[in-house]
Amino acid sequence: MSAAPGPPESALRRVRRQRDSGTWNSDLSVGELAAIHSVGFAPAGQVTGSAVYRIAVQGIPSCGTAPRGQPLVTELAAYGRALHDVRRLALDRMAREAIELGCHGVVGVRLTVRRFDHAMNAVEFTAIGTAIRRAGAAALPAPFLSALDGADLAKLLRAGMVPCRLAIGIAAVHVHTTNLWEETSRRADVARTDLSGAAASVRSLAMGRLSEEARGAGADGCVGSRLHLDVWPVPCGIHRDRDHVLQFTAVATAVARFDTPAPPAPEPVVSLDDR
């Protein structure tokens, strides 16, 4: 990934112009802005990163050698890795913009996926967030990234935790079901343990990777998990069966503990958000 180019020159020019102008723009709400200020940070501007990839499912195995009666679950490792790497690339480019702005972190990071009608298999991944900084503090090797909003950042810091990175866990598997299962399920109501098992394995692969990424960043935990399981049926070329491709995506904000604060006394509040 290190060989991948950074943000385009036009983006860097925009960021430098923003830095030198002494003003900033962001999509923060007023409540979030107040919350960020209350814990000693100040916003420095909107930052983005994007990458367009050609992504297609590949490596679906032949079911010819599958033992009858046994479901065949194969990981689509290259496909899963591509889905992960492209998100990481978009995030890295966004982080580069934050560094250009002399920032320590990015909050409210959102990852979006967009497909194009005219270009099959071309998918654009975009990361966008608000860069924040603490005046006078030494620069970090890499800014912290958080999918949480400004209000949550303030609450988290007061609870003695700080976001460190966006942890991503993605896995995709192909499951071939032998017709034994299909026939049984045509006769009676059955729990399809073959499909449940495949769902469990793709999930555990993805969650394991999420956890590993968080650990690699020296985090103590992950909050605000966003999980998504995509399932689509694919025809099996040899048998008259329904095969499935399963894709599990998990994104969470990894947090590191820097303090164990004493529980504060409850106090009446006027909420700044409309939840």
């Binding site: 000693g40 320590h104 700080v162 935990g221 999980l227 303090d259």
Partner: peptide, 24 residues
């Protein structure tokens, strides 16, 4: 101080003994 202490934790990442928790 909160921001400064938080950034200090990030500047010198210590590897936690336990696996990070995950939650919903």
């Amino acid at each position: 101080d909160l921001a400064v202490r938080a950034l200090r934790r990030l500047a010198a990442p210590i590897s936690p003994r336990r696996a990070p928790f995950t939650c919903d």
